[in-house]
Design a binder for these strands. Structure first.
Length: 423
RNA sequence: GGAGAGAUGGGUGAGUGGCUGAAACCACUGGUUUGCUAAACCAGCGUACUCUAAAAAGGGUACCGGGGGUUCGAAUCCCCCUCUCUCCGCCA
């Protein structure tokens, strides 16, 4: 969420910038400022009464120690009324703060200047295209047919074990999956990311801090008996490492990489266009997370884009990089680039990575700050994250684009990980 | 799962109702001393909200795992929860 100070000082700017996200913030910001004024007023009153209470209490202590019981009892009587007032004020303060917080949570992050207005996918801006479209065999098969033909992914078996969207990878398919994970992690390490292997189930606090709760509750699997949530992305546990933490400035940027399975309920988003690996309830992903100095976060974003581009490049996949328009940009993001690879048999672009700078929007909620040498005030860090990469669609593209009359050719860069050159 | 012990500032750790936002030590930062290093000595050293000033400085309030309660007053007493440690049970 945006900070109160920023909202107080930049109301008009925020309203203007949020138009790009098709969000009308006027009313909400007015409410926020009004509630904040009330909050300050109420708190001031309560604080000064409390100060009075504290000094009377001290006095009573002294009176008692001098054995002046009657005077002490008289002083006690004085406190009753003040106490009552404080109680009332603190009740209303709590309710003001609750409302204020709700309003604050309703304001999206303001988009970076590069973000253009727009409503849908068509309005995204292509900033780069790379790789070569593959030469296809006649009548290319989509990956779900190839998966069946070579018995490397079994969707029906997954349905038996769990349900739709939980495929079973078999034989060389399983090995290819494992190869991709290791490839992505090794490449990340080479780019200076340090690996973490976090839990894939998190508590409520973590889900709130990265913003999955309360608004996106339906997207996560919930374990009611312990009130835990299955992570929809490694962003949740990895970013939460830095919840409530004050970092020394010289530790920045922090670059983490993590492989985890991801779990998404995807309620209501099923349809004919999501066959095969295109959308799953459980999938593997390697995620990169960067905690950056505010002045350097766009540098970090570029670094992440370069890293992801290197991955699709090495896998010989045709790709394009899209800058999301205002309407497509997520609630928390200031700037997002999507990587899409072309899936030759399906004749469509598949999103395989989304790299975003959240600036201080996420860190404010997360309370992740840093201390600059010589400065007193702690400041919020900038957080960024991106997939590097999400496995299923990469797998789909590799399988489809590299199909030959005899089988499926494994990209050169992966061979040392798979141990075989074709399926 | 059962029984017991515990949770205090960056760390160790004192503190069982007012003189404690919190001793002491260590770490850290600045200074003095010094040819350099080390040592010694002095000083500083939490977070959030808020007020005055709006740079610097100062004041108020809250925070001793989390939440609630008793009291004029709670780190300290009571209740609930969470976590850690030890023992027992179970187990990959």
């Amino acid at each position: 969420m945006l900070t109160l100070n920023f909202i107080r000082e930049n109301k008009d700017l925020i309203i203007e910038r949020l138009k790009v996200k098709n969000f009308d913030a006027g009313q909400t910001l007015d409410n926020i400022i009004e509630l904040d004024n009330k909050r300050r007023e109420t708190q001031q009153k309560a604080d000064s009464l409390q100060a009075e209470m504290n000094s009377i209490s001290k006095e009573i202590g002294h009176l008692f120690s001098q054995g002046l019981r009657d005077e002490a009892d008289a002083a006690k009587k004085k406190t009753w009324e003040i106490k009552e007032k404080i109680k009332k004020l603190s009740i209303s303060l709590t309710s003001i703060e609750k409302k204020l917080n709700q309003e604050l949570l309703a304001v999206p992050n303001i988009p970076n200047e590069l973000v253009t207005p727009g409503r849908s996918e068509e309005d995204n801006v292509k900033v780069k295209e790379g790789g070569k479209l593959p030469e296809m065999v006649n009548n290319p098969m989509p990956h779900w047919e190839l998966a069946k033909k070579f018995d490397i992914i079994d969707f029906e078996l997954g349905t038996k074990l769990t349900g739709a969207g939980f495929p079973v990878y078999k034989g060389k398919g399983a090995k290819l999956q494992r190869a991709l994970i290791n490839f992505f992690l090794d490449e990340g390490e080479a780019s200076g990311f340090s690996e973490v292997l976090p839990p894939v189930i998190v508590n409520e606090d973590s889900s709130f801090a990265t913003g999955q709760l309360p608004d996106k509750e339906g997207m996560m699997y919930h374990v009611p008996i312990d009130n835990y949530y299955l992570i929809p992305t490694a962003e949740v546990p990895v970013t939460n490492i830095y919840r409530n933490v004050i970092l020394d400035a010289d530790r920045l940027p922090i670059k983490n990489i993590a492989y985890t399975p991801c779990f998404r309920r995807e309620a209501g988003s099923w349809g004919a266009h999501v066959r095969g690996l295109n959308r799953l309830h459980q999938f593997d992903k390697v995620e990169i997370v960067v905690i950056a100095h505010p002045d350097k976060s766009y540098e970090a974003l570029d670094m992440m884009l370069n890293h992801v581009e290197g991955l699709v490049d090495k896998l010989d996949l045709p790709y394009r990089i899209m800058r999301l328009c205002g309407g497509e940009l997520s609630f928390t993001s200031a700037l997002t680039y999507d990587f899409e690879v072309f899936s030759a048999a399906q004749q469509q672009w598949l999103e395989v990575s989304s790299v975003s700078n959240f600036e201080s929007f996420q860190s404010n909620r997360l309370k992740c700050r840093f201390r600059e040498k010589g400065e007193k005030q702690n400041k919020l860090v900038h957080t960024l994250n991106g997939s590097a990469l999400a496995l299923p669609r990469i797998m789909a593209a590799i399988i489809e684009n590299n199909q030959t009359p005899d089988g499926i050719k494994i990209p050169e860069a992966l061979v040392k990980y798979t141990g075989f050159k074709s399926i």
